[in-house]
Design a protein around this nucleic acid. Sequence first.
DNA 1: TTACACTGATTGCATATGCAACTTCTTTAG
DNA 2: CTAAAGAAGTTGCATATGCAATCAGTGTAA
Lengths: 166, 166
Amino acid sequence: MLWTMANEPDEARLAAWRAFVNAHAVVVDRIEHELIDQGKIPLSWYDVLVALWEAPNHGLRLHELARTVVLSRSGLTRLVDRLEAAGLLRREPCPDDRRGAVAVLTPAGRAAQLAAWPAYARGIEAHFARRLSDDEARILAEVLGRVDAAVREPSTPAIDCPKQPG
Amino acid sequence: MLWTMANEPDEARLAAWRAFVNAHAVVVDRIEHELIDQGKIPLSWYDVLVALWEAPNHGLRLHELARTVVLSRSGLTRLVDRLEAAGLLRREPCPDDRRGAVAVLTPAGRAAQLAAWPAYARGIEAHFARRLSDDEARILAEVLGRVDAAVREPSTPAIDCPKQPG
DNA sequence: TTACACTGATTGCATATGCAACTTCTTTAG
DNA sequence: CTAAAGAAGTTGCATATGCAATCAGTGTAA
């Protein structure tokens, strides 16, 4: 069987890619600086706290956390070290697997998350959300959610992948 | 003067933000790894080479380059060090300002850029572009281009901007 | 049971990056 | 013209992160 798969994006999609990458760089850079200037936790910490908050029992296996926040296992180990040292989460042994550990949100961690949110929300609103119409917001969430899901999909052969229904 | 400015994004815009951040993380991570596996230059190098290629005379002042690729000045100094050591660009003294330097693309730099493009293009296509309809691509480029421009705009009062001439 | 491959997490080392201080040059105020 | 203020770039130091190696525990097959 032979199907043709474009291996190069057309001009419109390339423009979308470039805008995507550039907008992310400037907006995240700006928001990160604003958070630090306001004495809040860094975004990498916030992401971990949110992932834990949204997890069952506010806890996640470390490898799951690594996948969720898109960090290498070693990177996550160190990030969890810092959060644990700050008292925002704690490691607990995993009952099912004695190799494993579970990171569990502490009350202080939840408090830090809540304390950071207003500043973060202001940044998102001022530098991102304000620029979106209702339709555009809906479309961005849908399209980028689809992109995210496709990349995270365990079976993504990339070269040999049949076209997916939009 | 008093007007009400929402300082928190609504649910749809927040979903867009989260999809934006998460999709960027997973897609860029994936493409970066694919490039390295294929023996190509890292994305940070590619970004610099493209910025130079698209600049007048294929050269840019270092501080302009830093703004373009969204890097601190010191970070850019070191990145340019590495690219220069690899022969992909060269520093030239700036004729107008004796403090300044201009980074200029070399033929080897242009060659490295061209050599990396097919692998990069495959990654963009496989993990991003093929998930977008024509309309979605157009909208993403427009919206995210708008967001990028607004943040880069020197006068972005956002919340508190103490010193604003005029 | 035992051997072996695999997975989860951590650690050593190397790299990439930012902040703050510094040098050099330019611009502005007086 | 001179001095102060500001801007461009570099460097020292600290931090964040990844890869590869390692240790410990799990699963599988003979």
